[in-house]
Design a protein around this nucleic acid. Structure first.
Lengths: 243, 243
DNA sequence: TAGTGGTCTAGACCACGCA
DNA sequence: GCGTGGTCTAGACCACTAA
């Protein structure tokens, strides 16, 4: 029996060698790497391959290049983390903020979709959605009012009356085999509305940050349509912005 | 007198042509593009150049490729692009939203920094900052109230009484040699305050989205401390969130 | 097996930063 | 003017998909 050889591309090997070079020579931030011509020769590959390796490292922000000057090592291995651009469940967001996540269920209902849902979830005519409404808490305080909708057909059997999982992602993964891979979020400043006050007992005229999102799986199929209203007193929403 | 020719790379031109091809043939999601060999011939460039053009389009998530099958158009033709995670000047944001950018200067002053500025900009004791306050407009409508501060020492000579450039980035680049490479933004829902109403004539009790940012150069040196209050009626703030 | 994208080579010229 | 990275060509072989 033959074990499948995992062929690693030359450029990936070259990348590894360059990383080793940085380690061995203890290069720090802004230290210069050898020019491409030297790397070509020392690794015995073409310039194209060297440039591919460098491109990979540049993407990972381990190095940067300046035309006419050279290639340099970036300052420490990327300190930035945990901005909004990283997709995480609200449960994780609450935990990361240092609180104990909790959930108060408001309702689970089958509904006719809004026009926006039909478009964003690419629903067929007549298709309905199941909407989950929850109040998420952080160590007992109101953290977010969450309205999540999925197409009816992803849920086998009758509409559930209760869901155990804290995280919507977890529930959909375990029971429906759905994996959210990325999301497009629109950020809207807003205030508590009538419904939130009545159903969730939230304060009147409180500023909220609405994350209006559609979640997709790896094949770009839209899975979840969600409107999460966050309490800005508890959350700091950060975004790391790159050129 | 000679006007500077702006040379556009072949791959960028090829990218443009491929986009036009998609438009003209009304390609929708998952429709297949011609193979690379055909694109090479029809555009009269090498395969490398075609592949560079396709790589650009793939980065922007306009197309995707499957080895052995072909190149395809992504499902929403241009969904992701220009999210908040991409650092752009407000001028560019206004242009991208389809408006004509404008500026009304409110003030340029030298001030003592707030505690937050001292921390974020790593100021020395006694160091002052120069604060630029502007009202940015989009085709005449109020788009954003912008408060930008930089350390006094980056500005040579006296504090300017006026600045020509639309973009703060441009000004700092041209006159101070500073290049903002990335920023960390905190997003806060807020409302118009007294100062904005008095100085800029903004409406009372209007919801605003505050982008509280620190901009850094490539060496992670903090350059600009800014508080930009955006009119959410004009801007859609999107963030693309990845796992 | 044919057709597609993925990787790689060898060589050329251009654009930029700096002394 | 030299050394650096940026762009481009021509050609080759490999890996994967589907008929």
């Amino acid at each position: 029996m033959k074990i499948k050889e995992k062929t690693v591309s030359l450029s990936t090997q070259a990348k590894k060698k360059i990383l080793e070079y940085i380690q061995e020579n203890e290069l720090k931030g802004d230290d210069q790497l050898p020019p491409e011509a030297v790397l070509m020769e020392s690794m015995g590959v073409s310039r194209h391959t060297v440039r591919e390796a460098l491109a990979l490292l540049e993407q990972e922000r381990i190095i940067y290049k300046i035309q006419g000057k050279g290639t340099f090592v970036s300052i420490p291995p990327v300190p930035i983390e945990g901005g909004l651009e990283k997709l995480e469940s609200i449960t994780r967001m609450i935990e990361n903020a240092g609180y104990e996540p909790g959930t108060r269920w408001i309702s689970i209902t089958e509904e006719n979709p809004s026009q926006s849902m039909v478009e964003k979830l690419a629903l067929q005519p007549g298709e309905t959605v199941v909407t989950f409404i929850r109040l998420r808490t952080a160590s007992g305080r109101v953290a977010a009012y969450c309205v999540d909708s999925v197409r009816r057909s992803v849920i086998q059997g009758p509409v559930p009356t209760a869901v155990m999982e804290e995280s919507m992602f977890e529930y959909l993964q375990k029971h429906c085999g759905l994996h959210a891979e990325y999301a497009v979020a629109e950020i809207v400043p807003t205030m508590t509305d009538q419904r939130m006050m009545e159903e969730a007992g939230m304060q009147k005229n409180q500023l909220l940050l609405l994350l209006h999102q559609v979640h997709y799986d790896r094949h770009r199929v839209p899975l979840i349509y969600s409107m999460d209203y966050f309490n800005p007193e508890l959350f700091k929403f950060r975004v790391n912005r790159m050129k």
